[in-house]
Write a protein that binds this DNA or RNA. Structure first.
Lengths: 234, 234
DNA sequence: GCGCGCCTGAACATCCGGTGAACTCGGCAC
DNA sequence: GTGCCGAGTTCACCGGATGTTCAGGCGCGC
């Protein structure tokens, strides 16, 4: 789509080996992305917060901080945000599995070719389409949602939501009227590639209703779509 | 929650090594899918046409026909229908990249564990989810059907339908004027491979008519096609 | 007028979402 | 390090919503 001038998305590459980070980022730039490199865990977390990338390419073998730990921090800082592709060494089967459970969007086994990585990045971002939802404030009269500030107001009163609660509400509200299955919500809000149990969604919906709805047993904003899932009604 | 549902989808496994095909299909069946195995390219293409699987697990190394060629044929046969997961040997990296470019949904590198493959299958199918028609709103004047919201309006009045009722109506309306047998409706709406009794369809049609038709005994939208089944007339 | 197929009503079986509560895990204060 | 706390997850239970079955009667097409 957009030419090389207007970037296709911003990507953070985390690898302790400068050569790899360098080559990879160069390929990504050539493919039309904006790319940054971080060489260790702490600076990766920092960069993720500053830069707000759309995707992070993360080497699991990092000095100082475990790669999975980095991933968890990035995710928990802003629970839904960047997609993550893990780089794993051959045979780290357990790491792979753990990584995917923690919600990596994909992984690439080393050694890999830069072309393959780029293809993976393309695939993941294509699948997630929306290169990040817009951060415009959502105004539904009594209910106002500010994605940038991550605040919600109901009748000018602030409603304090947890990270997941906010992400869930924001996602639903960004697609008003559309019905989603619990699995879809898991995909978009939790970013889990593999889920065990969708009842987590149910519970979070309940808490949202408890905090938001005038009468939680008679929801006005978050409707149940029986046999399907939920729908936000403005 | 993911209990022993009806069937989660139909899968075609293509591998020239009987052992692999066998093990994989067994795991898939245990995970709740219907699975078929094909041992070579031509029969894979044939099976894909007959069976219309939701997903194809395709070994790239096939005797007789190149795996990528098989993939192309399957894809071109019916437009983009089945999702495709490629099995590739380590190091066949160019194939993998080409595969992804050609529109494979994922690939798994051999050797892989069956559990991992199943997880991948889950992920791909859930990601695509839609398992069906586009979400465009259907407008027939007084009757409007919104698949995304899963809502139906009749003369600007919302008609509340259950999940099955909605699916049935949406399917019929997506093929206006076309007559379907009860078995076909079972196939498409219920996704059963084997059904004992098609009278379920009859009952659901009745309820739909009751909710939709101005005069349910004189149906306007859902016509009976004697000796065949039903037809939606816009 | 006949027979098959469709409609009807209601009973029956099943599923699903809401709920409360327990449990895990990290973060934080001490 | 220890222990508390909050967020997130998991689980079992329950009641109502939903889906299925069935027998009888009616209507359609021949």
């Amino acid at each position: 789509m957009a030419g090389p001038e207007h970037s296709r998305g911003s990507i953070l590459v985390v690898d302790d080996e400068p050569t790899i980070g360098d080559v990879v980022s160069r390929y990504l730039v050539r493919a039309g992305y904006r790319a940054r490199v971080a060489g260790d865990g702490p600076s990766a977390v920092q960069a993720a917060l500053d830069q707000r990338p759309d995707l992070v390419v993360l080497d699991l073998m990092l000095p100082g901080m475990d790669g999975l730990e980095v991933m968890r921090r990035i995710r928990s800082a802003h629970s839904g945000r960047p997609a993550i592709i893990l780089l794993t060494a051959r045979g780290e089967e357990s790491d792979r599995v753990i990584g995917l459970r923690l919600g990596a969007d994909d992984y690439v086994v080393k050694p890999f070719s830069p072309a393959e990585l780029v293809a993976r990045v393309d695939a993941v971002l294509r699948r997630l389409d929306t290169t990040g939802e817009p951060d415009d404030e959502l105004d539904f009269g009594a209910l106002r949602i500010d994605p940038a500030a991550r605040r919600v107001h109901l009748d000018d009163e602030e409603v304090v939501l947890t990270a997941r609660e906010f992400d869930l509400l924001a996602f639903l509200a960004q697609h008003p009227g559309q019905a989603f299955t619990r699995s879809q919500l898991m995909d978009h809000v939790w970013r889990y590639s593999f889920y065990s149990d969708t009842s987590t969604v149910t519970v979070h919906i309940r808490r949202l209703r408890f905090k938001l709805e005038p009468d939680p047993s008679q929801p006005r904003y978050i409707e149940t779509v029986w046999g399907v899932g939920y729908r936000f009604s403005p």
